[in-house]
Design a protein around this nucleic acid. Structure first.
Lengths: 180, 180
DNA sequence: ACGGGCATGTAACTGGTTACATGATTCA
DNA sequence: TGAATCATGTAACCAGTTACATGCCCGT
């Protein structure tokens, strides 16, 4: 999802102005995508340039531009909803990449990177668990779903890290055997 | 992980030239990061500009520049290994973002996006399972670990999608009740 | 001789990020 | 009055992506 697509989706609900879009975008993404306001305006410029949104000159109080989605915008948005985002190549993930690199090219750092990553994930899991039992509704639906996604992911990643560690220790024992 | 960091890690194993780095980078990332060769060279330029690598003028056959990591390069690489990549804000994920947006702002598209995403993930899972039982070793360690990471993720994501669907149908029933 | 893979590069573009400048409105 | 928030914008930068141009070397 690009900012562009996100803004289109929001504008599909009705005319909005830039600042409003910023806050709604952040709410909609459950806080995982904090957005610099400036970017909203530049993106809106591009959208306007491409004819996907237009400014409704609806006699405004002051310097407040209101944008609405055009027919073409709706079409592009529709196409985006329909599209299935082709996992080829698969989405890159920082954790995965770094651990991969550490295992085969990290030398003495390999194990440390893995265990540190695990500690981090465990901490995150605990934090989220506490958050969820304590809060309940704070932050809205999106934020709640994000928390759940993050937790599910973290658990999967933890299992994977265990696997990686196993590979690492096997690697080391092989190296020791090989050098005897 | 940036290309920059990846290249540093590879160069830490010893001097390399650009083309070689490309292939090794792709192998190291288990194929999840296909790299345009050009980018290797531009990145090497920047690394050289920043003094993290240097060209070993070691009397070469022809137009083949060989790069080696410098002291500063090793330092930066070390710092990267030590760093724990601060999940704040959490890594953005296309699947998560799109589903989130679809649920709250997708109108009639919401359910379709979720189910389509699930079909896609199930297909991926099956494909990977087949790959793994059939292949065994093809593609190297990195590729194997990537497959496992992808499968673990996919399973987690599937569970999350179920949760999302539940939210969606609840949402709809509420809307129906509300409009009676 | 020529086609394919090895090898090096450049130019242009895209999307995201930061930092900054400006002014209006609101409310304590 | 003065600070916070709302609101709009610009400039510069960074990293990644694509497309392209060039030439060498090796095997058929």
């Amino acid at each position: 999802m690009t900012v562009r697509e996100g803004l289109l989706a929001l504008l599909h609900e009705g005319p909005r102005h830039g600042y409003q879009l910023k806050t709604e975008f952040e709410a909609a993404t459950g806080g995982v995508w904090p957005l610099n306001v400036g970017q909203v305006y530049t993106t809106l410029d591009r959208l306007e340039r491409d004819g996907l949104v237009r400014i409704t000159g609806a006699g405004e109080s002051s310097a407040q531009k209101v944008y609405e989605i055009t027919r073409e915008g709706t079409d592009e948005l529709g196409a985006w909803w329909e599209a299935v985002p082709a996992e080829d190549p698969p989405p890159r993930d920082e954790l995965m990449l770094k651990v991969l690199m550490a295992i085969e090219h990290g030398h003495q750092h390999g194990l440390r990177v893995v265990t540190r990553q695990r500690t981090e994930l465990l901490a995150l899991l605990q934090r989220k668990r506490r958050e969820r039992t304590a809060a309940g509704d704070t932050g809205g639906l999106a934020a709640e779903l994000v928390t759940e996604a993050l937790m599910a992911r973290a658990e999967a990643d933890l299992r994977w890290l265990d696997r990686c560690e196993a590979v690492l220790v096997e690697q080391q024992s092989n190296r020791t055997k090989g050098s005897k």
